[in-house]
Write a protein that binds this DNA or RNA. Structure first.
Length: 416
RNA sequence: GUGGGCGUAGCUCAGCUGGUAGAGCUCCUGGUUGUGGUCCAGGCGGUCGGGGGUUCGAGUCCCCUCGCUCACCCCA
């Protein structure tokens, strides 16, 4: 067993049934997003490493320990994309999209790569569907992207979904707040749990999630980022909330919501599903008003989200997708008849029929069994005494010249 | 990176206190039936994840290793 070549850790093959479910998901995403004016974009699978170190943030876990980075053979370091927003912003700047009618609305469905330890709903190559709206700081953009995501998850029947919403304000406000929070924690560090105390520098916001009694007491008096927003950001957040209220979108405000990328400003949000395990996040996103400029483009506000395909499928109902119908199965009773059978199948396909030819050397019984298994409506059994055209549903049959098989099927179809 | 659980046929799994491999499903063939479902019979398919060790003998015990999986961390 172990000498067999296996798929690399954290990757998997998408087999038939799952491929069907993914195709259905993609069709739904296309309908919802393109219906709202989003156009599809495909960016490269790998990018210059600096795109992510500058865009996502050098101090993030993603950049520090999760990227597949390698030398491209020249003197440039390249990285398999770990997320989709920075590449879209790079493309926006590179192609001068700021000259298009704003906002520019783009969507994608692609695979991404992070070198994490695999777990339920977390893989090293994973797929995301995402949407980005660039060029407007209108709160309606925030609310509309959230509403679209909410609609998409509902249409995909993702179960037990909850939306958490927060605002990070500007980078400056966030940085100042973080220092204030750290000071608060350090001042009362003897009351904190060991884990929280150890993470004061790395991730002080984590302390809000602790269930440790002493920590809970400390956090009750802790400063909240939402109370530290400047007037413009607070107003922006209030408008986003008002629009979501008006649209009937349920959410809970979470003052401690954090995201893994440094580029977020103002609105941030996350959809979770209780149907998932520890990795309960189904989708997440927010506003990133400084990112395009950070990447060398014109100052451009932006807002968007990404949803995990595998997590959507895990949290969905997993209903089977019907296999495509088979109009005709072409069987034959002797090797000398193969060429005739081949021609019948080809002719049927030219007539836009879904046709399959016997390819496994089965016995007559085996061929009919196969035709039944795949749900073929008709079977043409080519033999030297004529071709038996059998209607599998009606269980009737007739002998016809093999050149007439396709016209007969088309005619019977027209009658029905 | 740190833990827990698990690795026997393509799939789901049995193999008690060590005696050198089984079942069901799938697939294929034949029979039955109505040329397909049912039923009956047969067949294909495994160096028991890998490597050492103990033993007359290891799927079973010991050590190492690889892989899968779940959780921490982080995130989609």
């Amino acid at each position: 067993m172990s000498q067999k070549v296996q798929a690399p850790r954290g990757t998997s093959d998408v087999l038939a049934q799952d491929a069907d479910a993914r195709a259905a998901l993609e069709a739904t995403a296309r309908r919802v997003l393109e219906g709202a004016g989003y156009r599809r974009i495909e960016t490269p699978t790998f990018e210059h490493t600096e795109l992510f170190s500058r865009g996502v943030g050098a101090s993030t876990d993603i950049v520090q320990k999760e990227m597949y980075t390698f030398d491209d053979g020249g003197d440039r370091s390249v990285t398999l994309r770990p997320e989709g927003t920075a590449p879209v912003c790079r493309a926006y700047a590179e192609h001068g999209m700021h000259k298009l009618p704003l906002p520019v609305k783009l969507w994608y469905l692609s695979s991404f790569f992070r070198k994490e330890k695999p777990q339920a709903g977390r893989y090293r190559q994973f797929w995301q569907v995402g949407a980005e709206a660039l060029g407007s700081d209108d709160p309606a953009v925030d609310a509309e992207t959230i509403l679209l995501l909410s609609t998409l998850l509902a249409e995909l029947s993702v179960g037990d979904v909850r939306l958490r919403l927060g605002s990070l304000g500007t980078l400056a406000a966030r940085t100042a707040y973080r220092e204030e929070l750290q000071a608060h924690l350090r001042a009362r560090s003897d009351e904190l749990s060991d884990e929280v105390r150890a993470r004061i520098d790395l991730n002080p916001l984590r302390a809000f999630d602790s269930e440790h009694p002493g920590t809970v007491a400390v956090m009750r008096d802790a400063p909240r980022l939402l109370d530290r927003l400047d007037a413009d950001d607070a107003e922006h957040f209030a408008e986003v909330r008002a629009l979501l209220d008006r649209a009937g979108v349920d959410y809970e405000v979470d003052a401690t919501l954090v995201r893994g990328m440094d580029y977020y400003t103002r609105t941030v949000f996350e959809f979770t599903s209780d149907k998932l395990g520890a990795q309960s996040g189904v989708a997440g996103g927010g506003r990133y008003d400084g990112l395009v400029e950070q990447l060398g483009g014109p100052a451009t506000p932006g807002c968007g989200w990404a949803a995990g395909i595998e997590r959507i499928l895990l949290a969905g109902p997993g209903r089977p997708v019907a296999a495509p119908p088979v109009d005709l199965y072409v069987a034959f009773d002797a090797p000398e008849r193969r060429a005739d059978a081949f021609a019948v199948a080809a002719e049927a396909r030219n007539a836009r029929l879904n046709a399959q030819l016997e390819l496994a050397g089965r016995s007559r019984k085996g061929q009919l069994k196969q035709a039944d298994r795949i749900g073929a409506r008709y079977v043409a059994l080519v033999s030297d005494t004529g071709t038996v055209l059998k209607d599998m549903q009606a269980a009737t049959q007739q002998v016809v010249p093999c050149s007439d098989v396709v016209t007969r099927i088309l005619r019977e179809r027209g009658v029905r």
